[in-house]
Design a protein around this nucleic acid. Sequence first.
DNA 1: ATTTGTGAAACTACCATGGTTACATAATGA
DNA 2: TCATTATGTAACCATGGTAGTTTCACAAAT
Lengths: 139, 139
Amino acid sequence: MNTRFAVAVHILTLLEANAGKPATSEWIAGSVDTNPALIRRQLVQLAKAGLTRSQMGPGGGALLARPADRITLADVYRAVTAEDDILPIHPSPNPRCPIGRNIQTLLEERIGAAERALEAELGRTTIADLTETISRRAG
Amino acid sequence: MNTRFAVAVHILTLLEANAGKPATSEWIAGSVDTNPALIRRQLVQLAKAGLTRSQMGPGGGALLARPADRITLADVYRAVTAEDDILPIHPSPNPRCPIGRNIQTLLEERIGAAERALEAELGRTTIADLTETISRRAG
DNA sequence: ATTTGTGAAACTACCATGGTTACATAATGA
DNA sequence: TCATTATGTAACCATGGTAGTTTCACAAAT
């Protein structure tokens, strides 16, 4: 999770700011300053997570799948983060050592709790919050 | 932050279990099942963070720099995580777009808060907690 | 039917990481 | 003083993930 999260949030914020009009990957790529195909790949991921939907053909593009005040940063985080992306994979500790044998599951418990705390905090902010703050600061 | 965090915690837990006797990188590598040089690289990082110290020469090795009940997983996390390792770097958004211009700093605020929540949760567990739990489960 | 735009595959380039070897340096003890 | 032990560190390779790019098939609208 590095640039993909930032780009995903950027995309969703753009869609919200676009007020229901389908946004093409090329237009989005213009604001993010990257490649349309890259944006489409991200959009597919976001669509699978139920955050966006896309329409093909002329006048088509991407739309938010639900109101922006019901999409939190935690939703985006989960959409973008591959399973065990944060859960550290320990390279097979020695099973003959009692610590090596037990440390991994124990760590997973604690990291799981920490990640839940992370997501809870991210869940406090919605895409609507972001657009509102930006328009207020820019205004 | 992937395997390095897990390995670092593993190392510190070993040092605590070793009860004040210096542990060589070779011995540690045996339990972690990896290379001594790799362990030494990690130990240097942990020493810079003030969590361990090392003694050269015969009978030397690594020791905890302070009691295990005063080393939290948050300390390890900070020692292992390079600056801006989690902070997503957005690939230069288009400054002509009001959203592209503002999204980055706004996101950094929110992610900063989320990371503080993560560290707060990690801060609730100490290395001493881990060794205690392991010995209880293994016992 | 033409145009517009997504979906998806194939490919390259790049960087971080793990892993490994080798060697200089420091500390200990005989 | 000298051999031994162990860290510190540099150099190097292999691998995997990611961004970036090109290309094309397919779907929808006029």
